[in-house]
Design a protein around this nucleic acid. Structure first.
Lengths: 141, 141
DNA sequence: TTGCAAATGCAACATTGTTGTATTTAATTA
DNA sequence: TAATTAAATACAACAATGTTGCATTTGCAA
């Protein structure tokens, strides 16, 4: 489903060159139903790219709004593909992240409606990061 | 205001011994109106305790519900004192964290009412971590 | 095909996380 | 008050991740 052509188009549309490392990272993220731990990405990229290359690649992807980064309940850094509404100007990944304490999986809950929060006077909100920790669908059954 | 006697009592009530390093950490956190970056705590503890001591100390404080840990919008690890309602059995720091993009400060907004979120069927919520990124009160004026 | 900006590789170093073990110390009790 | 002991600390050692600079390679457009 997420064929390589689409990924290449995604790269081009954001001004990125088509390189093996970048395609591989997008493949990994699009094929996963969960946010992927940094360590796992590094592991899978080990054969085709340097660690620093991956580091910089992830930064530029994030800056361009292709992917987003999150810390789970244990502090583990994970990455996930952004919804198509994101771009360099503004991320729109304002969905809830769910962290499972059993399988350690992190899921992007795109269907959950974001709550409206009233801040104290003087504060200006810019973006929201909501996470819920608990037991996921799979681990409940 | 947050005198040392209170901090010692806090330690004792959680089964901790009264040691210079532990008292110092509590002093730092109680005197700060913001969550304190790990690097800053380490810097201030450098003279009186080893890095590993601090590491284990923070872990045990967190486990006992004396302090809580958070990642700001840039991923920086910060610590803050827990409200008195917390204990080893269950943290009750279910307040919103506000991360300022100007001063990089992280504030615990205890007065903000937590929103009610409806999860998809099959998910079981356990705890919530809500953060808002923007411009804080001080930086707005 | 060539030229250039983008992307990568490599070296080097900083910060933070983590474990094991020997030693010291705070607090209890004899 | 001295002895006992579990808690706390120090130190060594190592792993993982973050970060910068610079030389080299490569994708792509002219």
């Amino acid at each position: 489903m997420p064929n390589v052509e689409k990924l290449i188009a995604l790269l081009k549309s954001h001004g990125f060159k088509k390189t093996p490392a970048r395609i591989r990272v997008l493949e990994i993220l699009t094929k996963s139903s969960k946010a992927v731990p940094y360590s796992e990405i590094e592991q899978q990229l080990k054969a085709i790219a340097d660690r620093v290359t991956l580091y910089r690649l992830l930064i530029s992807f994030e800056k361009q709004g292709i992917i987003h980064k999150t810390h789970d309940h244990l502090g583990t850094v994970k990455y996930a593909i952004c919804s198509s509404a994101c771009d360099a100007h503004a991320h729109h990944d304002e969905h809830v992240h769910f962290n499972c304490i059993k399988c350690s999986g992190t899921f992007c809950l795109d269907t959950v409606v974001l709550p409206n929060i009233t801040l104290p006077k003087g504060y200006l909100a810019n973006s929201y990061q909501f996470a819920i920790t608990g037991i996921c669908k799979n681990c409940m059954s």
